[in-house]
Design a protein around this nucleic acid. Structure first.
Lengths: 201, 201
DNA sequence: CGTTCAGTTGATATATTTCAATTCCAGTGG
DNA sequence: CCACTGGAATTGAAATATATCAACTGAACG
């Protein structure tokens, strides 16, 4: 499929949140991205694969997760306008520990590592864009780590305050997995919260 | 105190792990860093402060932590050759949720945000250095999040395999806090591990 | 020596998991 | 329009992991 105008628009808007580009610069960047449709439950990355692309989500919802003890543990979600990849695997050219798949039918733009590296060299502003994006992502992760050290209940509260608007895209089982607890525990925690509200009255 | 040759050496080596610099470029960068001695238990950052500097550790050991429920929870450590800061506070110019203090007498080089921003503009390679550094930091955090979802015992194992060489710099109470458990639990976990080894024989 | 601080141990309490059973709900075919 | 089905969420009871609190040990230090 050819890249569509609305995709270019979304990509450009995302980058220009950080750095302004000339049309020429943007065209050069955009020429390296290819659209990809991905249906619910299809994979962009599987464990043991070497991760070769960074993905920008145009539409839909993806998740990155890891297996241990036969269970899936979600590391992060990605919705419209977010980026997702396994940078550890990408940077070190090693097999990934992660899976990335789609929670619903989705559209992404993908760009491979070589193209990225050459864009970094050619367009300084694009390099800067990535720097800022990683700074933000890093600092968001710091918060996530801090809240993983709290009780399951506070973790859920923090999830709602951060990701509440995406809750409809994600099943409760997925949320539980993101929080590092079982679905049963999450169900009980939610009920507890509701009961507390009622008791207050 | 004036910046010392061994500090410059350490800084240059760290940056040149990623990008090669001319002497002129390095001098320009180095001129923006100031050395700071920090004694055990002194703070580089306290909750509610706006974080204004990034710190490069020349010598010693620092930690970043956060309070909840009257307890300290360690987010990350920083040893010789590591960088530490609260980028969320720095980027958004908001009061920090974190503390940064020294676990032992330490030396750091500090650089403030304005100086960094102007270096990013003046020296493209420095911008690139930060991009790469954040990519690495980000991907390391992804692993940390993944392992926070495991049992306390596996978290400890993963800690040892990653940070074993720094264990002497850090008390068991600090490690426990980093893992999100109590010191008592960590003590028991370590004993369990030892008992297993003995039983195998 | 005595004091202090880190680490350990024991007994009990609490949070979370596990496993099995049940309910709820949306989609499907008749 | 209804009856059935399968997946997601809920609930209960018992098991396990971790926290809490208090007492104790041992090494380091003045």
């Amino acid at each position: 499929m050819k890249i569509q105008p609305y995709m270019l628009l979304a990509l450009r808007r995302n980058i220009e949140n950080v750095v302004k580009l000339t049309d020429g610069e943007f065209d050069q960047i955009a020429s390296r991205f290819t659209p990809k449709l991905i249906r619910k439950n299809q994979f962009l990355l599987e464990e043991q694969d070497k991760c070769k692309h960074d993905y920008f989500v145009i539409k839909g919802a993806l998740r990155q997760y890891r297996m241990h003890d036969t269970k899936e543990w979600v590391n992060q979600f990605a919705f419209e306008g977010w980026w997702i990849s396994d940078w550890y695997s990408m940077l070190n050219n090693t097999p990934s520990d992660f899976y990335i798949d789609a929670l619903e039918n989705s559209e992404v733009l993908q760009v491979n590592k070589k193209a990225l590296d050459s864009l970094f060299d050619q367009i300084v502003k694009f390099d800067k864009f990535y720097r800022v994006m990683f700074q933000r992502a890093f600092s968001a992760q710091q918060k996530r780590i801090a809240f993983m050290q709290k009780s399951a209940e506070s973790r859920y509260e923090e999830f709602v305050s951060m990701y509440g608007r995406f809750e409809t895209h994600v099943s409760q089982a997925q949320i539980a997995s993101y929080l590092g607890i079982t679905r049963e525990s999450l169900s009980r925690i939610k009920n507890l919260g509701i009961k507390r509200l009622i008791d207050q009255k």
